[in-house]
Design a binder for these strands. Structure first.
Lengths: 159, 159
DNA sequence: ATATAATCTAGAGTTAACTCTAAGTCAAGC
DNA sequence: GCTTGACTTAGAGTTAACTCTAGATTATAT
């Protein structure tokens, strides 16, 4: 079974432009061509494409993905390098996800901040008396609610 | 207490170039200037900067952050809009994190794939006999190990 | 047989988010 | 008083990852 660039583009929800760009950058050296010079993707090529998409999602730059594909084409001598590459990006992705969790926590606290302001009809309830400055104790209040068992995910919901 | 652009840059680990760029894009309308036209950041400005950094981490484009700051400057009439904005990006961030979790799962399975190939000395152990195609059953084998209670996080570790 | 649609390449254009340069102003230390 | 370093603006340059155009070729459907 073989597939044209358009069929692969549809299957993977990636434009043919992008696939050709990846090819130009050396990400698709495994793709065969027919007599007319057109790309013919094999079933096994999807194993490579899956990895390419995974690495892209993980935030790995195209050039580095190209390096990984180079290692793949070289053979068994590079198994350790390929393992190390994936282990490295696993670590980086874990760190990135931890960072995003903090970002999400902050977004939820701010949502609660606006929920309470909305219920009071004004943001002034969060200001230090007689100023336009946010009272630092407001964040502490939110943290206390969470510490007391409230769910940070739902605490800011209006319902 | 007030701070120069350099002091703020140091505190937030953002370059002065970037801070000026954010100002140019309308993200810092709240920053005062001294008689000489130099930016003087107030303590309360860090509340805005915290939100800006949070939204950036969440992947919100600079233009949209500018829109949120506009809402902030308009006053209590926009509290609902600001709440909706944060709730929307909370949802998007949750979806993004779920996507990254799938990416991480895939990265771990591939790490295990290379660990086992490395232990066998060749990637051929994962190929269908007499071919260069990966046996689809290999992924199923990994999934079975996880279903049987193994930790996907450590299954691919070499140790 | 012919029109339409898909593909090819080389190379130009786009977008976002910086990042820096140039030329000038201002503040602090000696 | 003078030098050094931080700051100002406008605008140019950079980078990554596409995204598209032009002109040619090939495959598909009537």
């Amino acid at each position: 079974m073989s597939y044209s660039i358009g069929e692969v583009a549809d299957k993977l929800a990636i434009s043919p432009y992008t696939l050709r760009y990846y090819d130009k950058e050396g990400l698709l050296p495994f793709v065969d061509r027919n007599a007319a010079g057109r790309r013919r993707f094999k079933d096994n090529d999807f194993n490579f494409l899956e990895v390419i998409i995974c690495l892209k999602e993980a935030g790995v730059p195209v050039k580095q993905i190209g390096h990984f594909i180079d290692l793949c084409m070289t053979g068994d001598a590079t198994l350790q390098d390929r393992y190390d590459f994936l282990a490295d990006h696993e670590t980086k992705l874990e760190a990135n996800m931890a960072r995003l969790q903090h970002t999400l926590d902050f977004l939820r606290w701010k949502k609660w901040y606006y929920k309470t302001a909305l219920q009071a009809g004004t943001e002034r309830i969060h200001y230090l008396p007689g100023t336009n400055q946010v009272d630092p104790a407001v964040h502490a209040t939110f943290n206390q609610l969470v510490a007391d068992g409230a769910s940070p995910k739902t605490l800011g919901n209006l319902d």
